[in-house]
Amino acid sequence: MEIIGEAINRILQYKYSDITINNAKKIIGTRNRIAHEYDSISDEVIWTIILKNSPT
């Protein structure tokens, strides 16, 4: 999840990018929370995000 968030952040910052990513800000925010506030996020929260957003 950290890698995905970082990749989306770089895509959005690339000056020639015209890619639209749904929920990009939420994904980047989650990445930042995992990377910088790892002690305040529970495994259950991460698992719920994965289950709700993974293709079936």
Rank of each mutant, 00 (worst) to 15 (best):
M1I: 09
M1V: 02
E2L: 12
E2Y: 05
E2Q: 06
E2A: 03
I3E: 04
I3A: 09
I3M: 10
I4L: 09
I4A: 06
I4K: 09
G5T: 02
G5P: 01
G5F: 00
E6K: 03
E6M: 04
E6H: 06
E6R: 09
E6N: 03
A7Q: 05
A7V: 09
A7H: 06
N9P: 04
N9H: 14
R10W: 12
R10M: 07
R10L: 13
I11N: 09
I11R: 01
I11E: 14
L12Q: 13
L12V: 04
L12E: 13
Q13D: 14
Q13H: 10
Q13E: 13
Y14V: 03
Y14M: 15
Y14K: 04
Y14R: 10
Y14Q: 01
Y14W: 14
K15L: 10
K15G: 13
K15A: 11
Y16H: 10
Y16M: 09
Y16G: 12
Y16D: 14
S17N: 08
S17F: 08
D18V: 11
I19Y: 07
I19L: 15
I19D: 04
I19P: 12
I19K: 04
I19A: 10
T20A: 05
T20D: 09
T20C: 11
I21V: 15
I21M: 10
N22Q: 04
N23V: 00
N23E: 03
N23C: 01
N23F: 00
N23M: 04
A24M: 01
A24Q: 00
A24C: 05
K25D: 15
K25V: 12
K25N: 09
K26M: 06
K26C: 04
K26W: 01
K26A: 07
I28R: 00
I28L: 07
I28W: 01
I28M: 05
I28Y: 12
G29M: 04
G29P: 07
T30E: 08
T30N: 12
R31L: 01
R31D: 06
N32R: 02
N32L: 03
N32W: 03
R33L: 07
R33A: 08
I34T: 01
I34A: 13
I34Q: 02
H36K: 12
H36P: 05
H36G: 07
E37N: 13
E37C: 03
Y38C: 07
Y38R: 02
Y38T: 00
D39A: 01
S40M: 02
I41N: 03
S42G: 05
S42K: 14
D43R: 05
D43A: 07
D43K: 02
E44P: 03
E44N: 10
V45E: 15
V45I: 13
V45L: 06
V45N: 08
V45T: 11
I46N: 05
I46P: 00
I46T: 00
I46E: 03
I46W: 08
W47R: 14
W47A: 11
W47T: 10
T48Y: 14
T48C: 14
I49G: 08
I49C: 11
I50Q: 00
L51T: 06
L51C: 07
K52N: 13
S54G: 10
P55N: 12
T56M: 08
T56K: 15
T56Q: 12
